[in-house]
Design a protein around this nucleic acid. Sequence first.
DNA 1: CCTACCGATCGGTAGG
DNA 2: CCTACCGATCGGTAGG
Lengths: 163, 163
Amino acid sequence: MRDLGQELGLLGSSLYSHIEGKEQLLVEVIRSGGSMFQDLADEVAASGGSPFERLRRMIEGHVAILAANRDASATFLNEARFLPDDVRAEVLDMRDRYEASFRLLLAEGAESGDFPGVTDPAISATFVLSVLNALVRWFRPNGRVGADEIASRIYDFVTEGIT
Amino acid sequence: MRDLGQELGLLGSSLYSHIEGKEQLLVEVIRSGGSMFQDLADEVAASGGSPFERLRRMIEGHVAILAANRDASATFLNEARFLPDDVRAEVLDMRDRYEASFRLLLAEGAESGDFPGVTDPAISATFVLSVLNALVRWFRPNGRVGADEIASRIYDFVTEGIT
DNA sequence: CCTACCGATCGGTAGG
DNA sequence: CCTACCGATCGGTAGG
């Protein structure tokens, strides 16, 4: 809290005239991070298109959100365990619903014959999200590869693999 | 340190008759975690076989190490940033060398024509390791899918994708 | 928004 | 291996 205060040019204790506590700040950052991903999933689900098209939009949107909001994304993905029980349950629920939108999309593509490699939609969704979420660990703005190209490479990788 | 002592049936302060400090413990856990992965890479590189065969052995070995040593693996992957500069550099070097063994293997397969989807071995290695390392977050012994089957699914996913 | 604190916790030490 | 601490740090509060 003292560090946070310093970035605002005041003492840590002075923050308490404006906020309830440290935990409240964490909750708000995590919730706003989570809702960005949830909004994307809702948008793509509503927009229609083939499984391939929707998967591409999910990947492009996920990469864009994560590249533009690295701190909030990392907090949403990594810090939920420090939340009190009730809020943690809510955040895990957001994550589950987001994962479910991938699972549904992959299951639909499996049934339509578009994604024959998907025999277990839950595990395929986990793999796709593993690649996407690992970005918080290695993406650097101004890095060698830009966000748009990363999204395109991820799409190619999850659809076709290395062969 | 008090928690650690309690698991051994003594006080936190009593640990200091046996160890140098908290940091030393962390360093040893991380180093032993890292050397398991490094040993795997050395073994596979020495064993020969086609790029496909070596990739399969890398994936099987990685999953096996991670499934059998979840805490040490998670510490190796996540806690390096808390190390003092010199040891942190050493640990990041271990990680770089391990990643390089994937990169080399993928580059070799790209050149041989086995992995035509690999146009940028560095980014492909990152994707493969993203799927493998995410296991520390979701693998549960006694879970629905066993370690051997997970390895097999990961191999299928990285080689063929969802199509 | 600051002054002046509080109680709890942490890694660690001296001395036995 | 314990007793009895130490200094530093943390989230937070009372009162102005």
